[in-house]
Each structure stands twice: as structure tokens, then as C-alpha cells.
Design a protein around this nucleic acid. Structure first.
Lengths: 199, 199, 199, 199
DNA sequence: TATGAATGAGTGTTCATTCAT
DNA sequence: CATGAATGAACACTCATTCAT
């Protein structure tokens, strides 16, 4: 029996996961079109043909990966999300902290999501899932507007501002240009909050 | 005399411009790697070989285009830039308005610049030119910090927040999801300003 | 077990060999620049991409082929080369006979070697290997000069004369313009020997 | 009036000659297929289109050049050719000397002729003209055989031997590997003569 | 007459995908 | 299940040739 198997259980190394991890890293760094399937196979330490056992083709792979990343991001945002008897500011703090955690724990996932979120090869399911993620922000924004704590502007505009700011913020932190300290994060969070709150 | 010529001047239809325009549109929409040279040629209504009379290869083309776009964006930002005896808020208004104008007048240039600004095929000159653009924002930010009008945070972080917000903001406006009205722009400008100013 | 396999051995049809054989035929007949890679692939009965699994590019292919041909020619010349206690004439007989055998057994190799031996795309290794072949002739010539059996002239000149004569001789025989008989070969050998020996 | 024109006469610089000269140099050095028409135009200092005023296409150009070179070589060989009351040896001396002169006076013509004499793009007229040149050697050889001064072998074989030797000989001299002195030429001539004469 | 910008068919090469093992 | 050799369509790029000037 293979050393990789325990009787009746899953293999210790999961090839599907290896492939997704390799693809994430490469898609995030070079983009979908500049990443070849054999390169993914090399990085995942599997044969090129093996990728086609788990994903019908390259487009299915990128959609699977996108959905997995977005699902995880949404799940992260929703984890322990304070309910509505907490202040909007506390809820925003939660969003910011969870985004930050996601950026830290899933190395290139945020960059991958952002750079691929309007790609021509995303299928309906991927687009929907990304909208579902944005809807988490939208819900927050709209509740804030109802409570007259967040600016009375079209939600899409407010989402764009805060999402755009967060994406570039975590990107610049990731590059190491600035040191990530608790104080810095708190200050940046305050900036983003100031962008959307009523003054 | 040909209708295409004015005495002593260049031809009215400039193939180099046609190629750049077609490339901008395609690179912005599909990305560099997914855009084929023949497709650019078709859209520019020139032969495929003609592109190589004007640009040594595809990489030179994308760099030329990138530099031309960034140069124009920087020039737009600097046009009639109020000098330092105007308030920071007035200066920010100028930046915001000029960015908005650029987004309106140069259809896909902002999206192209943002999605290609950290591409592996950008040459040193392109990278420098993009840094020069960011330095316009940086100068503004740093003068604001000196005057204690802008938050005392690392400039790179503040640039990321405001640049990220602006990029996604003009993108969502461009898509037509929200109607671009003077009031909306003023409100959005205020949001972005609130993100970075001292409270 | 497949008919194409013998236990522990390579497949009976070797694609690398097929490609080299097809390339030899085409390069010899039409030259390097007039031979397209797809044409080689067709003749070798492989896909165009397959050639690039075995050779990095067309230049590597032509160099590999050149080296293989020259190595084989040198090996043929050196096979059973009589040692120095045989007369120069006997040694020359051996050279002539082996060249003739090579021309007969390796259909277009001699023409290919000659027409490509000063090509701009030959790499250092190919050039060296061809010099090594010429050095076999040079060694012979110089031993002959020492023994005052071969004309006291610059070796390069003598090599040119005898190599030039042999090349065109085997080419005309190959074309079938003249019938190759043992007598003809012996007479031609005598001609070539007379060109360089002392009278 | 142009400085290049004298009333009623030909232009001082003849573009057709310039093109042929440039083509000879490039074809001899890199071969027909590796030489581009624009490169010839550059070297000839004419526009690319100009070449097509003088030659219908690239194949017509190479055939015209080939024929001009071979015609000149034949003419050189026949110049002052001693008639039949001179000895065969004297006639061979003439052939050798004239070939040597041709190699010296027409820089790359001999290399060009040899490397292109069996090219697929030569037309009937070119092939005939090259045969006519070989027939000069053939006539000499056959007269020598009749007089039992030259070996009683197929003329094609003897031609191959002496022509092959001469080609490589003048090539090695041209490269400058050996210094061309009158003595060297006389000795080399003797070698070539020994190859074909009866012993 | 001479030009060289423009062309598009054809080149060398890559890569998503298949399938025999 | 897993593989990677093999494929051929599609790519970036070149160049013989044309034609408006």
C-alpha cells in the first residue's frame, strides 16, 4: 500500500489542493493568460495530464479557484460578524480586520480575486459569487445609510471607494513597502471609515 | 493634391495613432497576453506587418502605449495645478476633477494604466514614468502632512487608499451603473478627501 | 506487451532519429534556410511541436545533426585506420575507401556536411568537430610530408585539394552520372593520391 | 542637371550594377534564402522597390547574377586560350592561371557560383550556362584523353576531381590562411595537373 | 524614374489538450 | 489513477512584393 494512503481515508497529500495552490500563486503573479498549464503542473509537482483529471480545462480551473477564493473571503468576512445591535463602526472594524486577516493568511488570494474579477472567462457562477461577496459590503453600506451613519450616496459608489481603498491598501502592505503594525492598521481602518461615514 | 495631405504636413490619418488607439482598447479590455497582434491590426485597420514598422515588437508597443497614457495622465493632473497658496482642499479638488476629466476624455486609459502598472513586461522607463505619476500624489500628500491637514501616516499607505478609491470609483462610473452627475462627483470627492484628511 | 517494446529497451521507432533523418535529407537537398520546420515534421511523420521536444530550436537541430554526421564521418575514417608501419599509400587507400563507404552508407550526409560546414549558424562545438575531422586529414598529410612522400606544401592547401576533389568526386558518383565500379574507384583514388604525393 | 548624368550618356553610377554587386556579396556570404531583398537594397544604396525595376523578382535576380558570373568565368577561361598546337600541360597552366585571376579579380564570384550551381531556383538558362562552363573543362579533358596524356577515365569524374580541387584551393587562399605566392600557385597547379595526367 | 510605406502569406515556435501506457 | 510524450492550431514576427507618390 502506498505510503500516501491510510486505509479508507483520503490521501495525505491532496493533488487537487496542490494544483489550486500552484495555480493561485501563478495566476496572481503573472495572470491567467501568461500562465501555462504545464507550469502549473510543475509547481504543483504533478503531471500535466493530472490537472485534467481534476478540472475539465484551464477555464474550469480558474473558475474553480476563483470561486474557492471568493467563497473563503466571504466566509471570512461573515465569521463572527457582529449582529445589528453593534454599532456600524464596530461592524466596519470587523470587516476591516477580517479582510486584513484574509490578506495575511491567503497569500495571493486577494490580488488574484481583484485582478480576475472582471475577466472574460469567468462563468456565471463565478460572477454571482463575486457579487455575493460585494453584497456583504452592500448590506453593510445600506444599513449604514438607513441609520444615517454612512453617506447618502449610491451604494455602488461607496462600495467602489471602500473596496478600492482596501485592495490597494493590503497590496501595498503585502509588498512590504510599509511595515504592518497594529497602529498602522488601526489608522488605515479609520481612514477608510472616514471615507464613507457621514460627517 | 491629395485630400490626405496639407502642404508640408503629416498625413491626416496617422497609422501610429490608429495602432495605439486599437491597442489601448484591446489591452484595457482583454489584457496584454490575451490580445493578439493580428487583432490589434484588424481593429486599427492596418496590415499585421505594419505594426512592426512603428513598434519593434509587442512589448515595445505596450510600453509605448503605457508611457503615452501615463504621460498624458500626469500632464492632465499638472494642468493648472493650483499653487501652494491655495488650500489643500482646493488642490485636492483640482486633482479629483482632473482625474475625472481624464477618465471621461480618454476612454480606457485609466483602466489600462491600472491593470498594467505592475506587469512583468514593463521596462524601466515605463516603471519610472508611473512612479513619477504617483509622485504627484505623493507630493500633495506630503505637503498636506506637513501642514497637518492630512493624516500623519506613511505616504504609501495614503496614496494606496486614495488612488485605489479613485480607480474603482471612476471604473464604476464608467460602467454606467450609476449616473455621473455634478452632485455625485462632488460627494464622491468629499468621501475621498475625508479618507485622508485629519479629523 | 506492445510490439513496439522489448523488455527494458527503447521504442523501436525513435522519433528523434526520424526527425534527424528527415532534416538531413531536406537540409542536404534544399539547404537550412529553405527548409521549414513543418516540412521536416511532415517528412518525419511527427507533429511540428514534437520537434521542439527533442531540439530546443531549429539551430540546435541543425547543429545536432551536423555534429552527429561529422562524428560519424570521423569515426568511419578512423575505423581500422592502419598504423604508421603501413605505407602512406596504404593509409591513403584506407581514407579513400572509408570516405567512399561513408558516402554510400549515409545517403546525403557528405553533401550536408560540406554545404553547411561554414554556415553562420554553426556553434563553436560544431566548428570544432569539423576541424577535428579535417585534422585527421591534416595528420595524414603532415606525416606524409615528414616522410617526404607528400608534397612539401602548406597542409591547408593540400587538404583543400584532396578534400575538394573527394567531395565533388563522391557527389558525381552519387548522382549516377557515372557508374560506380571497383575499377573506377581505384582509378579515382590513384588520381587523388597523385595530386598530393611527391613525384 | 544631375551630377550623375552627362548629356546623352549613361548615368555614371549604374544602379543595376550596384544591385548585382550587392547581391553577389550577400548571396556568397549568407546564401540566397538568408538574404533579404531589403538588405540587398540597403547595401546597393537603392530603394527596395528599385530592385524590381531591374529584376522581375528575387529568382530572376539570382539567375541574372549567376549567369553574369558564369559568363564572365567562361570568358576568362577562354581568353587567350592556347590552341591545340600547345601542349596539354600548357593549356592546363592557362586554365589554372585564369581561374586564379578570376578568383582574385571577382571577389566572391567563385564561391557564389559553386554554392549556387545546383540550387533549386536556377532556371534552365542558368543550368545550361554552367554546363557550358564545365564543357570548357570537359573539352580540355577529352582532348587530353585522346592524346593519352590525361587518364582514361570518365570525363565527369576527372572534371569533378579537378574542379573540386580548384574550388577549395582558391577558397582556402581567399581566406588568407595561406599566403598566395607565385611559387605556391605553381606548386598547387602541379598538384592538380598530377591528379589527372597519365603517369 | 525611384522610392519606401504598406501588406499578408508564410515562418519558427508555444501550449492547451489528449491518450497510450 | 497518474503520467508526459505527442499533437496541431494559433501565436509573434518576417519579408517578397506592390503601388501611390
Amino acid at each position: 500500500m502506498s505510503i500516501n494512503k491510510l486505509a479508507g481515508s483520503k490521501p495525505i497529500t491532496n493533488k487537487r489542493e496542490d494544483i489550486l495552490k500552484a495555480a493561485l500563486s501563478l495566476f496572481a503573479e503573472r495572470g491567467y493568460d501568461a500562465t501555462t498549464v504545464p507550469t502549473i503542473a510543475d509547481k504543483a509537482q504533478v503531471g500535466a495530464g493530472t490537472i485534467y483529471r481534476y478540472f475539465e480545462n484551464k477555464e474550469v480551473l480558474v473558475n474553480s479557484l476563483f470561486q474557492e477564493c471568493v467563497r473563503l473571503l466571504s466566509a471570512t468576512l461573515l465569521t463572527n460578524m457582529p449582529n445589528n445591535d453593534r454599532t456600524m463602526r464596530e461592524q466596519f472594524h470587523h470587516i476591516f480586520v477580517q479582510m486584513s486577516q484574509f490578506a495575511n493568511h491567503h497569500d495571493k488570494a486577494l490580488a488574484f480575486i481583484d485582478s480576475h474579477s472582471s475577466a472574460r472567462y469567468l462563468d456565471e457562477s463565478s460572477v454571482t459569487m463575486f457579487q455575493d461577496f460585494l453584497d456583504i459590503l452592500r448590506d453593510f453600506i445600506e444599513r449604514g445609510k438607513q441609520q444615517q451613519i454612512i453617506c447618502p450616496m449610491p451604494s455602488d459608489v461607496l462600495i467602489a471607494i471602500v473596496y478600492g481603498a482596501l485592495i490597494k491598501l493590503f497590496k501595498v502592505i503585502k509588498t512590504g513597502v510599509v511595515e504592518e503594525t497594529p497602529d498602522l492598521l488601526l489608522a488605515a481602518e479609520e481612514c477608510c471609515w472616514n471615507a464613507v461615514r457621514v460627517h
